[in-house]
């Protein structure tokens, strides 16, 4: 077998390596890729991201009078009559991002039925409707427990109660809901949704 040196990667040296390199190669392989992929890559993308999209890069934070009041991407707990209420949350004591999580209750788990029944009767009493009128997203916990959105139907259900509590006309509240409703992206991606925190922020001026 004759050896043939070439710098073209297509033509390999026929004296093949059967040992897979040596410890120096293995150690420098680790060091190299920790620096390149684990430190340089995130540094470059993060700095670029900050420069191009400063608002999003910081976490889409909403401020009022110089104070952070939340993130437009993270829901908050609401209970007062003058506020729209979001979905049930299994994140800590409700909408706690440090312990984000779903309920992880199986469809067959009696605990799910119990929780949903309690939520449904609360909502029915609060909004003065029958349980069959409650849109399912209002009794189903979201995946991360931080969902900032509800369905337009779920907002519609709460309009009358909020309008009454705030002394506003139903139409005025409906207009505000409209303003914070997003349609499915390009008409096909995802679902229509109402951002509860942004809507409540505007109500609570």
């Amino acid at each position: 077998m004759q050896t043939q040196k070439s710098h073209n990667l297509n033509q390999y040296d026929l004296e093949l390596d059967s040992s897979g390199g040596n410890p120096i190669t293995w150690l420098s392989f680790a060091a190299l890729f920790v620096v390149l992929c684990g430190l340089l890559y995130p540094l470059v993308t993060t700095l670029l991201g900050q420069a191009l999209f400063p608002f999003q890069a910081k976490g889409s934070l909403l401020e009022r009078n110089g104070q952070i009041v939340g993130s437009s991407l993270i829901g908050q707990s609401f209970s007062g009559a003058g506020f729209f209420v979001g979905r049930p949350s299994s994140a800590g004591k409700g909408y706690d991002p440090t312990s984000a999580g779903g309920s992880n209750l199986a469809v067959s788990n009696p605990a799910l039925l119990e929780r949903a029944s309690a939520t449904a009767s609360d909502i029915a009493a609060r909004e003065g409707v029958t349980v069959e009128q409650i849109p399912v997203d209002l009794i189903a916990a979201s995946g991360g427990g931080l969902d900032p959105h509800i369905s337009p139907a779920a907002a519609e259900l709460q309009v009358v109660r909020v309008a009454r509590a705030r002394g506003l006309s139903v139409d005025a509240v409906k207009t505000l809901v409209q303003k914070h409703t997003a349609a499915p992206t390009f008409g096909v991606l995802g679902q229509a949704r109402v951002n509860v925190l942004e809507l409540n922020l505007e109500l609570q001026r």
Partner: peptide, 25 residues
């Protein structure tokens, strides 16, 4: 979701699903 039968308007299972994506996505 079978657990929600009769206690909400009937629609696809939303437990553990985010509103912006929905059950199909």
């Amino acid at each position: 979701n079978a657990a929600f039968a009769g206690i909400s308007a009937s629609s696809a299972n939303m437990e553990g699903v985010e509103q912006r994506f929905g059950p199909i996505a």
